[in-house]
Structures are given as structure tokens and as C-alpha cells.
Computed example of a mutant assay.
Amino acid sequence: MIRKSLAVCMLSVLVFSCKKEASETTVSKTENDSIAKTEVKEDLHKPIDTVYSEKNKTEDYMAALGFYKSKAEKEIAAATPEQNNKIYEDYVQVRSKYIEGLSRLHTDILDKYVNYYDSGTESYKFPENIKKLSVEFKKAGLEFREVGEGMTEISSVPDYYYSLFKNKVTPDYNAYIAQNAVEAEDNYAADAGLIISWEELGNRLIFWEKFINKYPKSPLLKIVKKDYNNYLYDYLYGMDNTPTYESSDGKLYEENRKEFNRIINTYPNSYTAKRAKELLSLFESQMPVDQIREKMNVESNY
């Protein structure tokens, strides 16, 4: 009788165990199916690759730009300022690649853009396709921008990144992004000539010099120093079509002399003022320009 009861008990345990395994298998299968469906759903919403393809259309790029903006906004809200520095760098990189793709896609429009300017009315007369494209670009923080020599580019509006990252990154990044927004408002140069005023260029030099002194350990220091050096080169010598001196007699133009003295008097202890003093002294000694350049030892890194 005991053996019979034991057998029944063991049979019950075996049946329960089989049912439990079957139940767990079903649950596991259901969970895996759910995960698979979710992954497929996410794959369907992934943006196009950043690598350019002739198959991509304008709407593909708009969708990709929108996807990454939303992604950045969510990440920024949950991250620390230090983490947002990295988010900023990554976002600039991926956005730049999509803008490059858009530019390649619309090469024909960019090549003809300046031709739509009507000198009679001093305004542009665009066909409908460009008007519609401009509206779409505006939604994504993009614009058509003439950069000189008959060239037009697609670029982010000046304050695009600052509007997203303002006061959400570390102080050095905040200052960097803010200043870039200001400097992007106007073209720096075109047709081998400076567009902004000499005074504005001098002020930019002072800003970046202060940045370098204030944030000596910033990860941005390498690129800031490069930009500063390029500005300094242009400030001292000018550009092909806007030089600081007369090549025929090697004399400084008066407007540049005044600007150098402004910097020297306003920021006497700055490195920028020091280099301006050196240049003034060398020109006053009537040293040949090629020797002045050699002695100054300031090179551009364009």
C-alpha cells in the first residue's frame, strides 16, 4: 500500500515538473518573440547611414536629422555636464555627415543658387522647389549660405548648437559653443579677402586668448589654439585681397596701424598686443617684408 502511494506521488511530481518546464518554455519563447519584434520595430525606425548613397532622398536626411536631434535632447536631459561635452562632440560629427550628404544630393542647386539673385530688385527670385526646400531646411535648423566666389553651402543656423547645449555642458564648452554661434553670424572671409572688420578680428583674438588662459586643461585647447593662430596670422598680415601693408613699398596701412595700437592700449598685457608691438617695430625699422615674416614666425594652419 505504501509502495502504491509512493508511486502515485512520484507520478504526480513528474507530471507537475513537465507542466512547469512546458510553461517556462512557453514564457521564454513568448519573451524572446517579444524582444525580436521590438528589435525589428526599432530597426525599422533607424535613420539612414551617414555614408553617402545616391539612393537617399531629402526626406531621408530630414528624418535622420530629426532622429538624432531627439536622441540628443533626451540624452542631454539625463546627463551630467561632462557627459554632455561628449554628446555635443558626437552630435556635431553625425550632423555634419548628414549635412555633407545633403550637400552632395543638392549639388545642382548649390551651383546655381547665386544665379537666382536679381540685381535689379536686389533680391533673390527662387523657383518653387528651392522655396519648399528652404522651408524644410529651416525646420531642421539648416540654411543656404553664400560663402563667396559664387559658392553656396548648406549649414546649420548660427545658434543651432548653442540653443541645445546652453548651460548644459562644462563652462569651457559653454563658452566655446556660445562664441562659435556669435562668429557664425557673418562670413569671416570670401574671395581671398577678410569680410569682418579688423577690430572684430582683434576682439576675436582677445576672446580666444582669454579662453586659453582661463581653461588651460580644456579638451578644446588644441583646436582653439589652432584657430587663434590662424586669426593672428590674418590679423598681422591680412589676406591676398585685404593685406595689412602695401606690397610695393612695405608700409603698413594706416587703418591697421590704428587697430594694432588699439589692441596695445586696451589689452597691454596680452600676447596679441605683444605680437602687434613686434610687428609695428619691425615695419618702423623698414625691414623687408619677407624678413619681417621670417622674424615674426607666425604661420597659418588652414
Results as ranks from 00 to 15, higher is better:
Met1Lys: 12
Ala7Pro: 00
Ser12Cys: 01
Leu14Thr: 08
Phe16Trp: 07
Lys20Cys: 12
Lys20Met: 14
Glu21Phe: 07
Glu21Leu: 07
Ala22Met: 03
Ala22His: 06
Ser23Cys: 06
Glu24Ser: 11
Glu24Gly: 06
Glu24Arg: 12
Thr26Gln: 07
Ser28Pro: 02
Ser28Asp: 07
Lys29Ser: 02
Glu31Pro: 00
Asp33Pro: 00
Glu42Val: 06
Pro47Phe: 15
Val51Thr: 15
Tyr52Cys: 03
Thr58Arg: 14
Tyr61Gln: 02
Ala63Trp: 03
Leu65Gly: 15
Phe67Gly: 12
Tyr68His: 15
Glu73Ile: 05
Glu73Asn: 04
Lys74His: 11
Ile76His: 06
Ala79Trp: 01
Lys86Ala: 04
Gln93Phe: 08
Gln93Asp: 11
Val94Trp: 08
Val94Gln: 11
Ser96Glu: 08
Ile99Asn: 04
Gly101Asn: 03
Gly101Leu: 05
Leu102Trp: 12
Lys112Leu: 14
Asn115Arg: 10
Thr121Asn: 11
Phe126Ile: 01
Pro127Ala: 14
Lys132Asp: 15
Lys132Gln: 15
Glu136Cys: 11
Lys138Asn: 14
Ala140Cys: 07
Ala140Leu: 05
Gly141Gln: 09
Gly141Ile: 10
Leu142Lys: 10
Arg145Ala: 13
Gly148Thr: 11
Gly148Arg: 10
Glu149His: 07
Thr152Gly: 08
Thr152Gln: 07
Ile154Gln: 06
Ile154Ala: 04
Ser155Asp: 02
Val157Cys: 06
Tyr160Thr: 12
Tyr161Asn: 02
Ser163Glu: 14
Ser163His: 10
Leu164Lys: 08
Phe165Tyr: 06
Lys166Pro: 01
Asn167Lys: 13
Val169Leu: 05
Val169Ile: 09
Thr170Ser: 02
Pro171Phe: 01
Asp172Leu: 02
Tyr173Ser: 07
Asn174Glu: 02
Ala175Cys: 09
Tyr176Arg: 09
Val182Leu: 11
Val182Cys: 05
Ala184Thr: 05
Asn187Trp: 01
Ala189Asn: 13
Leu194Glu: 06
Ile195Arg: 12
Ile196Arg: 13
Glu200Phe: 10
Leu205Phe: 04
Trp208Val: 01
Phe211Trp: 07
Tyr215Leu: 02
Leu220His: 04
Leu221Pro: 05
Ile223Met: 02
Lys225Leu: 05
Asp227Tyr: 10
Leu232Asn: 10
Asp234Cys: 08
Tyr235Leu: 13
Leu236Asn: 15
Asp240Leu: 10
Asp240His: 09
Asp240Gly: 06
Thr242Tyr: 13
Pro243Phe: 08
Pro243Gly: 07
Glu246Thr: 12
Asp249Gln: 01
Lys251Thr: 11
Leu252Gly: 07
Arg257Ala: 00
Lys258Asn: 01
Glu259Ala: 06
Ile263Tyr: 07
Pro268Val: 01
Ala273Lys: 04
Ala273Arg: 03
Lys274Leu: 00
Ala276Gly: 03
Ala276Tyr: 03
Glu278Tyr: 13
Glu278Phe: 13
Leu280Glu: 00
Leu282Cys: 03
Phe283Ser: 04
Met287Phe: 00
Val289Lys: 03
Val289Asn: 02
Asp290Ile: 06
Met296Ser: 11
Met296Glu: 13
Tyr302Glu: 05
